[in-house]
Design a protein around this nucleic acid. Structure first.
Length: 318
DNA sequence: CGTAAACCTGA
DNA sequence: CAGGTTTAC
């Protein structure tokens, strides 16, 4: 959609600085991280940088030109392969906030190398191959509420279409936080939007779900934040009480919006991946989920992200 | 309790 | 038909 590009150029951006605590990452892995189904508000710009919005934050991300001095010269990955330093820039007016929020958003305090190493790749050749294809892939820590919103929109939709819906929701119902750039509406704001207006954002039958979920949440202040803090099984159970939220979407919200690495969302990609690569033909999503949790262990959600990325690339490239 | 159809829109 | 949930057999 046109619209934001022209006005966005009025933004005065800070100079590029490296993201503290963030390991070097290749272009291919970065694309998978920002635009591989975890988040829906990052867009690649013509100059190759990424522009993204979360909560009240706007940032650009790009990779440094110089390859990091590296020890693992052997590893290959999806894109052009070379890990580079990640750099950020933000609208001047938001730079203080983004500087604080970005490392948390990217979960820079977590050692995903160690987490991935703890997965059973030594006895699982397909997992090993998937890890090697996207070295440095991690799980974002997005704001819980908007992660939930994004995944309620995701039902039977592809990433491009989900991004389209959220862009419309933001521009029509979310506050402008930088020239031409709008945040997503909060659930409290969504509660004031009619179902027809939501339909106008191309949500289709999801409009009803979001409308009813917003009413539910508006009547229960603090419910969402409490849910994010509950133990995983309880949190998931509570989320599934929301209209439009089943197991898969609850797991996505908890994995990508509440850092619950034990959440193991089973969508058709992961379903197909496990059925085909692990000889589990005919297994139902529920059976696959049980297998995944048992086989991959306490960080099954991280394993899921690698398998998902691998499967998606296999489809578009083979 | 497992499977099927409906739900909106458009790539 | 599509990265899903819900409601109805």
């Amino acid at each position: 959609m046109p619209g934001s590009a022209a006005s966005a150029s009025e933004i005065v951006w800070t100079s590029w600085r490296s993201v503290p605590g963030m390991p070097a990452i290749s272009a291919g892995t970065l694309a998978e991280l920002l635009d591989g189904g975890q988040a829906f508000r990052w867009h690649r710009r013509p100059d190759g940088t990424w522009l993204g919005v979360w909560a009240d934050c706007v940032a650009r991300l790009s990779l440094g030109p110089e390859p990091m001095p590296q020890k693992n010269a052997g590893s290959r990955d999806a894109g052009d392969g070379i890990p580079r330093t990640l750099r950020w820039s933000a609208p001047r007016a938001l730079s203080r906030r983004v500087e604080r929020a970005l490392p948390a958003y990217l979960a820079c305090d977590a050692d995903f190398g160690a987490l991935a190493d703890a997965l059973p790749w030594r006895s699982d050749a397909h997992l090993a191959r998937s890890l090697a294809a996207f070295p440095g892939l991690r799980i974002l820590r997005q704001p819980f509420g908007e992660t939930l919103l994004g995944f309620i929109c995701s039902a039977t939709k592809q990433i491009v279409q989900i991004k389209q819906m959220l862009a419309l929701l933001a521009v029509r119902h979310g506050a402008e936080i930088a020239p031409g750039i709008h945040r997503l509406p909060t659930w409290a704001e969504l509660a004031l939007v009619s179902e027809d207006q939501l339909r106008g954002c191309l949500l289709g039958f999801r409009a009803r779900h979001i409308h009813r979920a917003a009413a539910f949440l508006a009547a229960r202040p603090g419910w969402l934040d409490e849910t994010a803090r509950l133990p995983y099984p309880t949190a998931k159970e509570r989320l599934c009480a929301l209209p439009g939220v089943g197991e898969k979407i609850a797991d996505c919200a908890l994995l990508f919006g509440a850092a619950r690495l034990e959440a193991f969302p089973v969508d058709v990609w992961v379903l197909r991946a496990l059925q085909n690569r692990y000889a589990l033909d005919g297994w139902s999503p529920a059976q696959i989920a049980r297998f995944g949790r048992a086989h991959f262990g306490p960080h099954a959600g991280l394993a899921q992200q690698f398998l998902f990325a691998f499967e998606r690339r296999a489809k578009t490239q083979v």
